[in-house]
Amino acid sequence: MEQQLEEIREQQKASWNKFSPGWKKWDALMMDFLKPMGDEIIYLLNPKTSDIVLDIAAGTGEPGLTIASLVTNGKVVITDLSDDMLEIARENALLRGITNIETKACDVCELPFEDNTFDAISCRFGFMFFPDMLLAAKEMVRVLKPGGRIATSVWNGPEKNFWITAAMGTINRNMELPPPPPGSPGMFRCAKDGLIADLFQQAGLKNTKQVEITGKLNSKTADNYWNLMTEVAAPIVAALSKADDAMKAKIKKEVFEAIHQKYPDGNVQIDSSALVIYGEK
């Protein structure tokens, strides 16, 4: 792996390990938020009871744990860059009595599995972080059995995802942050219509399709929203770490104002939109 990609991978691993306590704290809310996308991935994969499934960039364990509850005579290998996130996934499996899983800390660009191992692969919100997305897709195809299915989700554009732009847009308005290099990992890197489907085809997949799935972040209050985003969202935390106290207070005030303007009744359920993409080997 090129040195630059290696550096990105190591930074991401450190970041996810660092933020794992926040993800554990907010797991119930985040999993409720991301469930519609996971449900669509599972629907498209249509796992059979004896399937061997790979869940990539699984974080705290979804949708891999739900898939494991369906493949009662099979198993799910749950992978992530971060050992600390996988520790939470194992705890979640234990709490739910799910035993047909394995966890493996690994990089999607160097999957430690034989060719033609898995019947299906799920990857919910992983592609935007992969340093080399085409290499990642090719690795997935390599370990997928002929006839196997892949489904992934990526975020749609910022105009449909107020749950991230409420905070990040306010930060960008107030702070002169350098724009990331084109194509570098980021929330909306994969939002372009057809981008992942084209990538899948380049990697050798066929019968690709894309659907839009909407959801809501049911944070209930602006306070909950702010605390969640400043404990799980690495780009927001990184940006705020560069701000002095006065600037942080100004940003927080403006975020609360934006939330209250959009949800004047105080019931903060923030819209989201994602694309779910499917392909077959």
Rank of each mutant, 00 (worst) to 15 (best):
A191K: 12
A239K: 03
D244A: 08
V211Y: 04
N224L: 14
I251P: 11
A249S: 10
A243E: 03
K248I: 03
N207G: 09
V232R: 12
G215K: 04
A203D: 10
F256A: 10
W226E: 02
K192Q: 12
S184P: 08
I259W: 03
L195E: 08
K252F: 01
I251D: 08
A191W: 07
S184T: 13
S184F: 09
M229A: 02
T221G: 06
L205W: 02
L195G: 01
Q261M: 14
M187D: 10
I270N: 00
F188A: 12
T221L: 06
Y263S: 05
Y225C: 07
K220D: 12
A246P: 00
V232G: 12
T221K: 08
I196F: 11
D223I: 04
L240A: 13
A233Q: 09
E257Q: 13
Q201R: 15
D193T: 08
G186W: 12
K242L: 15
Q210H: 01
S184R: 02
G194A: 01
A238K: 13
K248P: 05
A243Q: 09
D271F: 04
K250N: 01
R189F: 12
A238L: 10
V268D: 07
P179K: 09
Q202F: 06
K250Q: 12
P180G: 03
T214F: 08
P185L: 11
K250V: 06
D265Q: 05
L240F: 14
N227Y: 11
E231P: 08
A233F: 15
G186R: 12
C190W: 00
E212W: 09
K262T: 13
A239G: 10
H260Q: 14
G204Y: 13
P235S: 01
G194F: 04
T208H: 02
F200P: 00
M187Q: 06
F200C: 00
D198S: 15
K242S: 14
D245G: 15
S219W: 00
M247E: 11
A258Y: 06
S184K: 02
A203C: 10
P264G: 08
N224R: 11
A203G: 14
K242N: 04
V255G: 09
G204C: 14
L240Q: 04
A222K: 14
P182E: 04
G215A: 09
E257C: 05
D193N: 07
L205C: 09
M247Y: 01
E257V: 11
S241K: 15
E254R: 02
P264E: 10
K220W: 03
P182C: 07
Q269L: 05
